[in-house]
Design a protein around this nucleic acid. Structure first.
Lengths: 264, 264
DNA sequence: AACGGTGTTCGGCAATACAGAACGGACATT
DNA sequence: AATGTCCGTTCTGTATTGCCGAACACCGTT
């Protein structure tokens, strides 16, 4: 999947492929044969790797079958990584406050080379549960957090990201033309927050705003997500003010706590 | 760390040791030399493994240094594993409802061979943030969830678990004698819920109750955690009724949704 | 009862993951 | 400014070890 220029360990890569396969696999687990066939390896080699992963809790076995399922160590590592992340630690109480105040789902994303990577989420009380994945690069041009981050980049960086990710159309509102995107980013710079008006999913509306480290570099964005029908122009405007206010509070906290700059 | 009887893959085990080391390591990351020294391997071999883990997002590098930190894939995998876990999916709305109603921190644990393994948590609105890890076996005798689970085991199973885990004293209230524990478990069976009266940590009070799969087997427990000073006898009693009610609702949902039985 | 499908075990070969030394750069010290 | 020490990185050889394929054992079905 991932590619680097330098020496790496093949058996580890194969093992991690297995984890991803099973985590993304069927709800009720996968059998050894299915897994071996999926990765194109021998059953004996795959079995040894699976055993190692089970020993470490990355996978677990359910009988009868036996079938392999995601293990509880994954939950543990995710929880620990979240608890240790200074940005999440800073943002969490603010997100919870904002979610309680607005009744919306609030998320925080890192700026990962121009792409938004959501790392924490506080669900609103609504019945609608969005399946918003964490910890992975999202399309930058169809989310409010992504567009807010894009608006902080230079023109060269924007073009580079857009060329790489492509202006994929997710709904009929998605921005698919570079010129249109640039105009939108200009507007975002003016008002200070970005919107997502059903550009990623039908019926979903978001607003987002960026925050900055002590070098002044944009290191991420927060966003609020709700259903489109709830949104009048006046509400968008006041929600925009609110999201800017909380993004600024994140910035303030970062400056107060001297958060470390992100890696490249 | 973990041990099995069968063939396993050494380089994968070493790689996963690295992940645990770094996740449990210092806040600002570890350098290659530190890591190599900690695991007792050569720098070149450790470097190759680290590169692989970075490629897959399990670790990330921050400059300058370079230092290695937990990567965002860990958050992603934890989130996915949670989202896929049928027990978490069932329990989550109930936990949130109970947390909102009681103002307490609510957790759900699996019964993992007699040990409680907390897999999801809904923090209460209080200022006190408990560092309650997820995804790992906890001491059974010092938590309400653990004691509630123990109370569902046979005498042989109880003795086996207690012999293995040991009746370690965490506070002056911790139960350290087997006879006392059995008496307590008898009481729990009678009233239907378990308490933790500052047995794990000073000033912390919990109540917990179990739920069951469609074989009638106890597969876990939920618990509510608060500060001791808030707890009058009357409140403990009404909280006990409440936790039983919600645990029963979890059981009902499990039966309705035909959850799969746990391994073993 | 025999077959297709499992998961598991066992040798043998070759790939490959490891160790160690040598390089090059950054920083601190003198 | 020069030197020394630490770091990360690269390289090459060696032997470890992880892989394959076949054979075995086990259910369920036909």
């Amino acid at each position: 999947m991932a590619q680097s220029s330098a020496p790496s360990v093949g058996s580890v890569a194969r093992a991690l492929d297995l984890v991803e396969l099973i985590v993304g696999g069927p709800e009720n687990g996968m059998t050894l044969s299915e897994i071996a066939k999926a990765v194109g390896g021998s059953k004996s080699a795959v079995l040894a790797t699976l055993r190692t992963l089970v020993d470490f809790g990355y996978l677990r076995i359910v009988d009868p079958g036996p079938k392999y399922l995601p293990g509880m160590m994954l939950i543990r590592l995710g929880d620990l990584a979240s608890a240790r992340d200074p940005l999440i630690t800073i943002a969490r109480p603010l997100l919870e406050e904002l979610s309680a105040k607005s009744g919306l789902t609030i998320r925080v994303a890192r700026n990962d080379g121009g792409y938004p990577v959501f790392i924490y989420r506080v669900d609103g009380p609504g019945f609608v549960r969005f399946h918003t994945p964490l910890g992975i690069r999202e399309l930058p041009h169809v989310s409010s957090a992504g567009k807010a981050i894009l608006a902080e980049l230079t023109d060269e960086e924007i073009e580079s990201v857009v060329k790489e990710s492509g202006l994929i159309s997710r709904t009929k509102n998605s921005i698919t033309k570079v010129a249109e995107l640039k105009k939108e980013l200009e507007h975002i710079r003016k008002v200070g927050f970005a919107t997502d008006d059903e550009e990623d999913a039908q019926g979903i509306f978001c607003v987002g705003a960026t925050f900055f480290d002590h070098f002044g570099k944009c290191i991420g964005a927060i966003s609020a997500t709700g259903v489109k029908t709830d949104m009048t122009d006046a509400q968008v405007s006041s929600l925009g003010k609110l999201i800017i206010k909380y993004a600024d509070r994140v910035t303030d906290e970062i400056h107060g706590r001297k958060i470390s700059r992100r890696a490249r």
